[in-house]
């Protein structure tokens, strides 16, 4: 089995793991977004969705999946980053510049994926504390702030309507989109996917999906703040 360990500890192998877990996380985000968009419909729809989610098998799968994917994704990327830093050596460049002709956003996204990701980690921690770890208190009505038992929608609105939390969620959501803007296509590259005709579709499609996810999540705190 040493070949397997060797493969997945190599740069390309680590990148592959980061890519697979990354795409898994994207898949999770898509589901998460679709569910969350129920927020815009009646209170009961959102709360019923949340209830059925939490009483089913899906939440276990998601929890376990995330508990595996997140650390793997972050671990691999940070490990690579340490190697990458070493590879540059002690002396860096005095002047930073580029020769790329791609649009600036794409170039910046590609170079800031790691740092954006680390900031995201902080956001995710808060988010998990807000809505995952406090799920029990919402369910049994001890959340406070006039949120009734099981009324997740009110809990969400109560949280997001506080300007600092609302702003944090808006920024965190945008950052997620930014992270994926480069991340989705890079994941495909990590698998070695290349085709002269289909690669441009992946690049464009990945960018579009990242934008939808980013703006989709952002729309919620904005909606709460504006309403």
């Amino acid at each position: 089995m040493s070949w397997l360990v060797k493969t997945f500890t190599s740069h390309t192998g680590r990148k592959l793991l980061a890519g697979i877990t990354g795409l898994g996380l994207v898949l999770f985000l898509v589901m998460h977004l679709i569910g969350n968009l129920q927020l815009f419909s009646s209170s009961s729809a959102f709360n019923e969705y949340a209830h059925s989610l939490h009483s089913g098998f899906l939440i276990v799968l998601a929890d376990v999946g995330l508990l595996i994917a997140f650390p793997l994704h972050i671990g691999m990327v940070v490990w690579l980053a340490i190697d990458n830093k070493k590879a540059r050596g002690a002396q860096g460049y005095k002047v930073a510049n580029t020769k790329q002709k791609r649009n600036l956003a794409a170039v910046l996204a590609s170079k800031s994926t790691l740092y954006g990701g680390l900031v995201l980690l902080f956001f995710v921690a808060i988010h998990v504390w807000h809505f995952r770890l406090q799920h029990e208190s919402i369910a049994n009505g001890t959340f406070g702030g006039g949120v009734g038992p099981g009324d997740l929608k009110s809990a969400v609105i109560a949280t997001l309507s506080k300007p600092h939390w609302g702003a944090l969620y808006a920024i965190g959501s945008l950052l997620t989109g930014w992270h994926l803007f480069h991340g989705i296509q890079a994941a495909f590259r990590s698998f070695g996917a290349y085709h002269p005709r289909y690669t441009p579709i992946i690049v464009k499609g990945g960018g579009a999906l990242a934008t939808i996810i980013g703006l989709g999540f952002t729309s919620m705190p904005i909606w709460v703040l504006l309403r």
Partner: peptide, 17 residues
């Protein structure tokens, strides 16, 4: 890798340079 080069982050700077 053994020679101490870093990994690819797909910034595409190499192609431009």
């Amino acid at each position: 890798e053994a020679q101490g080069f870093g990994a690819c982050s797909w910034t595409q700077e190499c192609e431009a340079a």
